[in-house]
Simulated scan of single mutants.
Amino acid sequence: MPHAALHRFLRRVDTWLPRLVISPSGAAVFVFVYLFIAWTIYVSFTRSSVLPDYSFAGLVQYARLWATPRWYVAIANLFIFTTLFMGGCTVIGIMLAILLDQRIRVEGVIRTIYLYPMALSFIVTGTAWKWILNPGLGLEKMVQSLGVTSFRFDWLVNPDMAIYTVVIAGIWQSSGYAMALFLAGLRSIDDDVLKAAAVDGAGPFRLYIQLVLPMLRPIFLSVFVVLSHLAIKSFDLVIALTNGGPGYATDMPATFMYSFAFQRSELGTAAASATMMLATVVAIMVPYLWSELRTERQ
């Protein structure tokens, strides 16, 4: 009996010890993530301004949010940035992955070069591209110093074009990550399938369009989820590169929320914008998770 009791005790320890070890982290995540999310959502339904005011006010803050012209600029910029950022990263990523899948001799070096930008933070990327695109000391000045005095590239200070500088910097940083995912997918395809298609007369272009790319559908979905998440929460890249300017021409929902919360002291409107961003992320993640669970069940 003592041996059996000891065995039961050790089995209980094995069961509960991992839970005890991770419980502090779980409690911290619950408090500092989920409770603060719940707090933000509730504040968005109050009359909070400079300080929180917990009296319920319905959709007042949402009406104020959607009556703010700056919010529409942020939404339009998010649409432009997300569309071009995701499209550019996907196209460049799949092209680089196909190139590396040819098993060229210097594949390791090229793969490292392509992946290196992903190791940098968006703050570093934004700062570097701010120097590169600055008309007074970057690309424009360098080309003009070579004798092409008519060359102009002032997108960084042009309100109509500044958002596209954010797109350029974002694509430069994240295309390597998309490439890595696509390359892993290409390497997972059975070579026998490709050889059989080649024997049937499929050329390289037709082989990739009709066979390889459709087989990469799960990879495309993963790339879509990751890149859309990066696009929606883009904050540090915009702050480092344009600081939302000129004016608020490159404002995004994340920078809009920061500005209204900490610079204009309109806490309720900022909470409403944060809730709208959360709803957008949930609208993307829920179908993805449902698709993954359905695939696992099948």
Rank of each mutant, 00 (worst) to 15 (best):
residue 2 P to V: 14
residue 275 T to S: 11
residue 25 S to N: 08
residue 216 L to P: 00
residue 143 V to I: 14
residue 64 R to G: 09
residue 251 D to K: 02
residue 84 L to Y: 02
residue 234 S to K: 01
residue 161 M to V: 15
residue 133 L to D: 00
residue 184 A to T: 14
residue 70 R to Y: 12
residue 262 F to E: 05
residue 248 Y to K: 02
residue 108 G to C: 05
residue 16 W to F: 08
residue 284 I to R: 03
residue 202 A to V: 15
residue 101 D to S: 03
residue 279 A to P: 02
residue 263 Q to L: 13
residue 198 A to V: 14
residue 189 I to S: 00
residue 43 V to I: 10
residue 114 Y to K: 00
residue 297 R to E: 07
residue 201 G to E: 12
residue 61 Q to T: 09
residue 296 E to A: 11
residue 172 W to H: 04
residue 36 F to R: 14
residue 248 Y to Q: 06
residue 100 L to Y: 00
residue 225 V to S: 05
residue 188 S to M: 12
residue 112 T to R: 08
residue 192 D to I: 14
residue 261 A to L: 13
residue 101 D to F: 02
residue 131 W to V: 14
residue 24 P to R: 13
residue 205 F to Q: 08
residue 180 A to I: 13
residue 151 F to M: 07
residue 143 V to H: 00
residue 203 G to S: 08
residue 247 G to K: 05
residue 98 I to N: 06
residue 55 S to Q: 14
residue 190 D to A: 02
residue 230 L to G: 09
residue 141 K to S: 14
residue 192 D to L: 12
residue 23 S to D: 15
residue 240 A to C: 13
residue 247 G to Q: 06
residue 170 G to S: 15
residue 61 Q to L: 09
residue 34 Y to D: 08
residue 252 M to N: 10
residue 214 P to L: 12
residue 212 V to F: 00
residue 278 L to V: 09
residue 85 F to K: 00
residue 193 V to N: 01
residue 132 I to W: 03
residue 94 I to Q: 01
residue 93 G to M: 07
residue 111 R to Y: 05
residue 272 A to E: 09
residue 159 P to A: 07
residue 129 W to V: 05
residue 54 Y to H: 04
residue 96 L to E: 06
residue 276 M to V: 11
residue 200 D to W: 13
residue 224 F to P: 02
residue 234 S to D: 07
residue 239 I to E: 12
residue 196 A to K: 04
residue 69 P to C: 11
residue 24 P to N: 14
residue 242 T to V: 10
residue 65 L to K: 00
residue 80 I to H: 04
residue 121 S to K: 12
residue 59 L to E: 15
residue 288 Y to L: 06
residue 274 A to K: 04
residue 84 L to M: 07
residue 188 S to N: 11
residue 49 S to F: 10
residue 257 M to C: 10
residue 19 R to W: 15
residue 209 I to F: 08
residue 6 L to S: 06
residue 32 F to L: 13
residue 205 F to G: 03
residue 191 D to M: 14
residue 40 T to E: 15
residue 129 W to S: 00
residue 273 S to G: 06
residue 272 A to G: 06
